[in-house]
Design a protein around this nucleic acid. Structure first.
Lengths: 167, 167
DNA sequence: GTTAGTGCAAACCTTTTGCAGCTCT
DNA sequence: AGAGCTGCAAAAGGTTTGCACTAAC
């Protein structure tokens, strides 16, 4: 269970990384890793469980939680909250992508990713200023996306029009 | 219950901000606001409840949750996770300080705050790149603080010495 | 006097734990 | 063979909800 922190180099290396750590690559873990690595969206434990169960109906929800915990500890996945839009569950994504922030629209729930340089600058400064060794850095931004801003503006306009009509 | 988003200008304005929104300033809410605004540490719902109960033994835990939810919705407090070091509960801080990141040592639990410019840069870029209207931005960094790095280095050294002695 | 807010109990959702049995190496 | 892992059931932790009563404006 004590899995040391190592950053994986690529998609396929996740399994190798685990093997090197002496973690057993069971059928269940392979299924879960495959789903995590190929998922286009950010999965929470429940959705991951549902997808996994489709491949192996016997796979238990508890195994999902235990696997996620291990992967998180081993630094193979990141844990996100996505601003708790949609509940208090956690979301997971494999760490193959470069570091990025998550931008969550709190109206439609859409999630965008931001890779800009302020993230690296922030890392550097925190390490310098505090003599800190960073293991995880997580930035989440909540607000309204361009589309929803437009829709909201229209709603406000419509409401105003109604108000005028009523007056 | 629908409290619109407004950023408070100072410590004392929190109550004014609520009044302007037509939110009733009950005894319980005053107690909770006072504690939140004067707390040196990041409080979770339970600790806030315990502190509040010291001032009013009848004040209920549920009221704490309801009040926090309202303050969060109204943009008067920020909700933090502090990397879930210490559990899955949420922490709260009043929004009077300028925006800052939280740096959490995952060995000793110490929390530092970082106010550097990369945070503003990030804000600007996200707004520009995505046409996004930011309501909340949250950055949390987990790792080892300078002190714990030193202690860890020493532990490793000691362990190595033991290993040599045993060999 | 109204309507929002509170307290209490009970439910809810997500996640963890204990333990017996199975399985990977 | 044996440690590690899984499944099942049950519990735990944190938070929310329904409802009758109370208090702020």
């Amino acid at each position: 269970m004590p899995v040391s922190q190592t950053v994986p180099k690529s998609n396929t290396s996740a399994k190798d990384a685990l093997k090197e750590k002496g973690v057993r690559l069971t059928r269940q873990r392979q299924i879960l890793l495959d789903i995590l690595n190929s998922s286009a969206t950010h999965l929470d434990a429940e959705n991951l469980y549902l997808l996994a169960r489709a491949k192996d109906p016997k796979l238990n929800r508890v195994t999902v939680y235990r696997t996620l915990k291990m992967l998180k500890q081993g630094g193979l996945v990141d844990e996100l909250d996505l601003m708790h839009f949609g509940g208090d569950q956690h979301y997971y994504e494999s760490k193959m992508k470069p570091e990025h922030a998550h931008i969550i629209c709190m109206r439609c729930g859409r999630v965008e990713e931001f890779f800009g340089e302020p993230l690296q600058k922030l890392r550097q400064q925190v390490e310098q200023d505090f003599g800190f060794q960073i293991l995880i850095a997580r930035t989440e931004v909540g607000g309204y996306c361009a589309l929803c801003r437009a829709l909201r503006a229209r709603e406000v306009q419509d409401a105003a029009a109604q108000g005028v009509a009523r007056a």
